[in-house]
Amino acid sequence: MTQPDLTALLADLRLLTEIESPSGDARGIARVMDVVQGWLEELGAKTEHLVGDTRRFTIGDGDGGVLILAHADTVWPHGTLDRMPWRVEGDKVFGPGTYDMKGGIVGAVHALKLVRDRLSLPVEVLLTPDEEVGSLASREHIEAAARRARAVLVVEPPVAESHALKTGRKGVGMYHVRVHGVSSHAGNAPQQGASAISEAARSLLRVESFARPDLGTTLSTGRIGGGGPVNVVPDLAEFWTDVRVSTLAEAERLEREVRGMTAADSRVTLEVLGGLNRPPFERTPGTARLYERARQVAVTLGFDVSEAFVGGGSDGNFTAPLAPTLDGLGSPGDGAHALHEHVRLDVWPRHVRLLAELIRDPGV
């Protein structure tokens, strides 16, 4: 197979990186999508603008092909380039969104260039605007595309350091518990009040007690608030708890446990909001076959790949229950959501070649 052009990869990655596209910035995200649209249309892709600002690109006709999932948004606010500019140092290229996941987008386009004339299946590229904030607008399109696909290739980055591909991810969610008590004067009539803060403290500990680390189920309360003047028994408090689950059965158990809670004080009510945002990405036989195909291709290209189950979610969580899904096919590097975010230039080209062969023939 022809080698990808590293100079061209770098130029295209710089172009995307220097368009700041934080989640929620429709204009910046559209600028990224416009560039990608131009690249893919040069390869013969047809473009469709979907509701919610997702863009669908297709090469070839019919269903039952390969779906490539990518997102144009990043976690980085405007102005990040001023303190975290694009720069190349040795075999690393730094910049906001390089690793997660503009390198993945660029790699997918260049992989398609390598095999455009040798495709055995139709290809669909779905570029979404809101992965970093839960894919609320794009989830419907992602799941519909997965139902059409024979295989789903997610160009999120591989695991840092090991560059392992991802054959499983935890389900991700958040519970927001609002506690409604009864206010009263803390000095003159404390008995007439029912403290929302006291009940929130009890409820928070109870929610966290539902964790089952042995089964991969973890809960972590990252934010709490409530109350007002110190001399008033508070009538409102709330907290937010991060949820990670390895299996759908555990997600269902948590739903029963958390939503079944009642307050110790009958005058207090609990309002449970939120829940699971992304279902668990469980390793199915189809995903196992897709990974084995990737492993064999890597060997022919002169390197080894491994697989990993990770705690963070991606849009692959939505597709894994619907079609064989392999994640981590983006650009190798490190520092997702961190100031040292970078792509490894010494190993990136071989991962582009691996992705190209999987696009050409996913083996499922």
Results as ranks from 00 to 15, higher is better:
residue 302 G to M: 09
residue 329 L to E: 09
residue 330 G to C: 00
residue 278 R to D: 05
residue 226 G to R: 00
residue 353 R to L: 15
residue 194 A to M: 10
residue 262 T to K: 07
residue 169 R to E: 15
residue 170 K to P: 06
residue 360 R to T: 10
residue 283 R to K: 03
residue 262 T to W: 06
residue 183 S to N: 14
residue 357 E to G: 03
residue 196 A to M: 09
residue 296 Q to A: 15
residue 133 V to L: 05
residue 236 L to M: 07
residue 140 E to Y: 11
residue 165 L to D: 12
residue 34 D to R: 01
residue 151 A to N: 05
residue 93 V to T: 13
residue 164 A to R: 02
residue 83 R to W: 14
residue 232 V to R: 05
residue 182 V to M: 07
residue 229 P to I: 08
residue 288 A to K: 04
residue 312 G to Q: 07
residue 116 R to K: 04
residue 311 G to E: 09
residue 245 V to S: 07
residue 256 R to L: 06
residue 63 D to S: 14
residue 115 V to Q: 01
residue 357 E to V: 04
residue 283 R to W: 02
residue 161 E to K: 10
residue 289 R to W: 03
residue 209 S to N: 12
residue 257 E to P: 01
residue 69 L to Y: 13
residue 67 L to R: 00
residue 119 L to V: 03
residue 94 F to H: 14
residue 60 G to P: 05
residue 353 R to P: 02
residue 210 F to S: 02
residue 63 D to N: 11
residue 138 S to F: 13
residue 215 L to Y: 11
residue 308 A to S: 15
residue 168 G to Q: 10
residue 21 S to P: 10
residue 153 L to W: 10
residue 276 L to N: 05
residue 43 L to F: 01
residue 229 P to K: 02
residue 165 L to P: 10
residue 192 Q to N: 13
residue 69 L to V: 08
residue 162 S to V: 08
residue 312 G to K: 01
residue 7 T to D: 13
residue 2 T to V: 09
